[in-house]
């Protein structure tokens, strides 16, 4: 571990000569944290979690009084990073910033992960995405009812852009079941990644796209939202929620839930350290200056707290495990 202490996070800054005041809060040596804290990001540089971790890090390290070191461990749908994180000691010196849903459930349900979803404890998941059914402007489709009618008549009449083995796919199938649409007849066009799926949707390459809605915010003037898979309207989209369309008891899976987590075992092994981390994240997430800075980068800081965050991930896991057949290749 000592090797990592030698790496200041802001080395790039010093090199440029553009000095940024480094955190200089001095604490008594014995108090936690007494050394830099690693933040595992189980994705490559440039993705949402990486940007979130790097954007919040300067504030969080001010609050904690120790530098944060971002460690990218991308690959295999976050399985490699999650496994790596679990192999680190639960001493509070390694925390994680990840898309806990859907990747933890996917790792466990489809990839023989060596951990359980409950081995992770999310302190806060500020970013909560949702599947959105969307079409490009000018395709002629204007409402979800139209999609239902056309698919009921001929399930293959519309091409649907979607990621395989995803929460979006589970949502599509639940939607099909709710409206008597033939699952097997659906004309799925599969994309690896949300970005390509959205591009194909916005370009009208596919008739309808089923993919995380927040990524569409930047493309808002090019697409027509048809329905959001959540319990109410989201992000100002002029589209009904699934509960309005398929009934109040409609089944659906929540979208990506991204944010900050620790080893679940940390709560027992070092409750004091857990308190330090959790309160630092809470105070930073509620700081108006931080909220403003992150909003400028399209990053969420909403505080939901550990209880709500973990409950939501558990629920996602339960729904996904009921539909595990949909998650294993299509």
């Amino acid at each position: 571990m000592s090797n990592m202490t030698r790496r200041g996070v802001l080395k790039g800054a010093t090199a440029l000569g553009a000095m940024i005041a480094a955190p200089t809060v001095l604490r008594a040596q014995a108090a936690y944290p007494s050394q830099p804290i690693n933040v595992v990001v189980p994705f490559d540089t440039g993705g949402y979690n990486d940007r979130l971790a790097r954007a919040l890090a300067p504030y969080l390290q001010d609050a904690l009084g120790q530098p944060l070191i971002i460690v990218n461990r991308g690959g295999a749908g976050a399985l490699l990073g999650h496994t790596y994180f679990m192999q680190q000691p639960d001493d509070g010196y390694t925390i994680i910033c990840t898309s806990a849903a859907p990747f933890l459930p996917l790792n466990v349900l489809t990839q023989n992960a060596s951990f359980d979803v409950s081995d992770f404890h999310m302190i806060n998941t500020p970013s909560r995405d949702y599947t959105m059914m969307t079409t490009a402007n000018g395709t002629g489709i204007t409402s979800v009812q139209e999609v239902i009618d056309r698919l009921k008549e001929d399930a293959g009449s519309l091409s649907i852009g979607i990621q395989p083995a995803s929460a979006d796919l589970v949502n599509l199938m639940l939607f099909a079941d709710a409206h008597g649409i033939d699952r097997a007849g659906l004309r799925l066009v599969t994309y690896s990644g949300g970005g390509p799926t959205r591009n194909a949707t916005a370009g009208a390459v596919v008739d309808v796209g089923m993919v995380g809605g927040q990524g569409f915010l930047r493309l808002a003037d090019q697409v027509t939202p048809l329905m959001v898979f959540d319990s109410g309207p989201r992000d100002g989209w002029e589209a009904p929620a699934v509960v309005d369309v398929s009934g109040a008891d409609a089944q659906f899976v929540a979208g990506s839930q991204r944010g900050w987590g620790v080893h679940a075992s940390l709560l027992a092994s070092h409750p004091d350290r857990y308190e330090v981390i959790a309160s630092a994240i809470e105070s930073v997430s509620k700081d108006p200056a931080v909220i403003a800075a992150l909003q400028e980068q399209d990053l969420a800081t909403d505080w939901h707290g550990p209880e709500a965050s973990n409950r939501s991930i558990r629920q996602t896991f339960e729904v996904m495990s009921r539909h595990v057949d949909l998650l294993q290749g299509s």
């Binding site: 090797n3 030698r6 790496r7 080395k11 090199a15 540089t45 070191i69 971002i70 460690v71 990218n72």
Partner: peptide
Amino acid sequence: YQWLVPFPFPMTVL
């Protein structure tokens, strides 16, 4: 490389 790469390399001495 330590300086250039945004994550640590495993080291023994340095």
